[in-house]
């Protein structure tokens, strides 16, 4: 099998590499740009944006585990209007494309956030986070029910003037069916996948260390779980698959591309290595011999 080309055209945009920075691990790209760490990044995916400002969850929001990281940030963000007026103008000069991650508590909220943000020309597309709780309909995550995923995807496609990916959840439901539903609703890609539910309990108190009890788990050890899901989903849909999770070296990215991913997100690795995008690209070039 021939090595995949590392530069690519995706959503009509030229990408210098298949590496995207996962939502929540690089803000809106400004800090890493100032640190000189966006070299080699194909794109930045922003932190989640909701309609109204959210201050986020009470601390502790993070807990490192022996082989990974639990997070419970609570979608902290200043709200769509503030992002449109204050943040996007400040990141219009990023050296790579920006994708905005969108979260909501109802089907309508996803469409509303996109309707506000589309006044800006700074970003190339959206990533729709269907892993958050559907507050309007009982609190289960949108992503576990393919019918609801279809409705979110359809609602966004009716208002979006540019491509969007639906970021699927591994926590309950059938991810392959959810991916098919996202595609039928009009999604231009699917992201596989969001964090895995995790929990750590202080045995002395019997209580969860994280106040919201369960949290999102990320780890390099999740690589085989993500590879399996990317392989399953990419065999079931015709839209591109963006992988998210499990990446710590260039070989991992190449493996995810071989599993069927078109783009590969790196997240938690950025906590150790803010310049991971460039490092991963260099490692891949060495492995494939591409200049």
């Amino acid at each position: 099998m021939s090595s995949p080309s590392l530069t690519r055209k995706f959503w009509g945009t030229e990408f210098v590499s298949p590496v995207m920075l996962a939502s929540g691990t690089s803000g809106f790209g400004e800090e890493l740009f100032k640190l000189g760490c966006l070299t080699g990044a194909g794109a930045v995916v922003s932190k989640a944006v909701t309609m109204k400002p959210r201050s986020g969850n009470p601390p502790p929001r993070l807990l490192e585990t022996p082989f990974g990281l639990l997070n419970s940030i609570g979608l902290a963000n200043p709200g769509a209007r503030y992002v449109l007026e204050n943040i996007l103008p400040a990141v219009s000069n990023l050296p790579c494309p920006l994708v905005i991650n969108v979260a909501g508590e109802s089907v309508q909220e996803f469409a509303d956030v996109v309707s506000v943000l589309k006044e800006s020309g700074v970003h190339i597309g959206y990533e729709i986070n269907v892993s958050c709780p559907n507050v309007a309909e009982g609190g289960a995550a949108f992503g576990v029910d393919p019918e609801v995923v279809f409705r979110v995807s359809e609602a966004v496609s009716q208002v979006a003037d540019r491509p969007f990916s639906v970021k699927l959840t591994p926590n309950g439901g059938d991810m392959v069916q959810a991916a098919v539903a996202a595609q039928q609703g009009g999604a231009s890609a699917v992201t596989v996948c969001n964090t895995f539910l995790g929990m750590m309990i202080d045995w002395k108190t019997g209580k969860s260390v994280i106040k919201r009890k369960v949290a999102g788990y990320t780890s390099p050890a999740l690589l085989p779980l993500v590879v399996a899901r990317v392989w399953q989903v990419s065999n079931a849909v015709s839209v591109p698959v963006i992988s998210s999770g499990g990446v710590s070296c260039g070989q991992d990215v190449l493996q995810l591309l071989a599993a069927g991913a078109e783009m590969v997100q790196v997240g938690t690795r950025l906590m150790r290595r803010p310049c991971a995008a460039g490092e991963l690209l260099d490692e891949m070039k060495k492995l494939t011999g591409e200049q």
Partner: peptide, 15 residues
Amino acid sequence: SRMGCGWGVCDGCSI
């Protein structure tokens, strides 16, 4: 505080 990044992107160390 428990920190993820240390450079302002992850919102993990909020006080």
